[in-house]
Write a protein that binds this DNA or RNA. Structure first.
Lengths: 226, 226
DNA sequence: CTGGATCCGGGAAGATACTG
DNA sequence: CAGTATCTTCCCGGATCCAG
């Protein structure tokens, strides 16, 4: 898009990352790590291929990402954020903190992908039992989800890993999961709305926001030995 | 613009503030406080009136700002950020932190307005002499500038005030001021490049980033009793 | 004179078909 | 799979016009 032509740091940033789809490309690469063209397209439903190409070229020119030819077998190219690109994490974080309250107002036909919840989870969830041993939960499934680890009071999120030691696997309807992570509803209500927790629900409770009313879900049911 | 149609906090935020010019409208209102249509237009060189109208309507619909009819004399309307709108400060802050290094790469013919430096000043400058009494500096002039106060280790910026007690007034060429505030050049170099400091230059040095080489400007010349 | 609304040309975005 | 080419649609930008 055309430059704003202003000698201002905000305008300069928007000259580079202010175009339509651009920040969502950054989001995908921040969440999922290096991706191929098709994978990127999959996380950006509705983007035209020519437009995605154009955005990737522009971001490459500005040093936000790099094209990497994978040498194995054929020349499949990967897109990877540079250090400069990863520095956009702060912008993404502030955008999602601001946008989170409006997710519930999204058009009903909105598309949902579980991995989009990984950054909100990182910022909205906390490890409420720091003294307990590290514990990893999977949200969603391997094809679209993320692994969240609570340890020493910290929360980390990563793309799903084959060899993660999972204490629990969480899945369910889109809107309910969003509300659960934001603390808008508690676990008992979420389960009533169709959320399924396989494994130790205590591992999930450990990181969920505390909702106002200490519900029956708090003392929980069992810790099945896994 | 069209919604991304994604159940994702980042996409939802961009649905609201991702359109062209929108974040710059927010920037103006954050920096300058409530403004009239024409004042807004003045801080957004190149925006078409119809487009500005449209953006203001959209932001009003989303509860980011409110139109206020000033009852005095004729019906001049003011635009003021709501609490929700002011919550975008974090997004602006992260954008400017990311964009600051690229300001020097801006097109040569870029427009400059002094008040655009006020937010960078707020985040890039520090009060290095917290024990000294509060001290206010004006950057630019009353028509386009801002007042910066250092006190108790904190930095505050405000639109220019008629009754501010000024220790110093700083002006000079655009690019040099940008470099000075970012610590890319030191005060001695800035003065050599045309920056003028009227009053106590010590008041300016108190808040400037420390450049690598402790230059002659550091021990400074005098503190004229004012 | 400020605060807009209307009109229109050019260009960016969206959809889809096509190719190495 | 990773784009390119093409066409349509819609938004942006600039000028002009209108109302209080």
């Amino acid at each position: 898009m055309k430059s704003y032509g202003q000698l201002c740091a905000v305008a300069r940033a928007l000259d580079i990352v202010g175009d339509r789809w651009t920040m969502l490309v950054i989001r995908e690469l921040l969440i999922q790590g290096p991706l191929r063209f098709g994978e990127l397209q999959g996380g950006l439903p509705g983007v035209a291929t020519n437009l995605l190409t154009q955005r990737l070229r522009e971001l490459e020119e500005h040093g936000v990402l790099v094209r990497e030819s994978v040498r194995r077998s054929s020349g499949s190219t990967m897109y990877r954020l540079t250090e400069r690109g990863e520095a956009l994490e702060g912008v993404i974080r502030e955008l999602l903190k601001w946008g989170a309250p409006t997710v519930s107002e999204a058009p009903a036909e909105s598309i949902f992908q579980m991995h989009w919840l990984s950054q909100p989870a990182r910022y909205l969830l906390k490890d409420h039992r720091p003294q307990e041993p590290a514990s990893t939960i999977r949200f969603g499934n391997f094809d679209d989800g993320f692994d969240l680890t609570a340890s020493d009071g910290n929360i980390e999120v990563r793309p799903c890993s084959r060899d993660a030691q999972l204490r629990a696997v969480v899945s369910g309807p889109r809107q309910v999961l969003v509300g659960l992570l934001q603390g808008a509803i508690d676990l008992a209500a979420a389960i009533a709305c169709g959320v399924e927790v396989q494994g130790e629900s205590a591992a999930l409770i450990r990181v969920l926001p505390q909702t106002g009313t200490p519900s029956s879900a708090d003392q929980d049911n069992s810790l099945p030995s896994r």
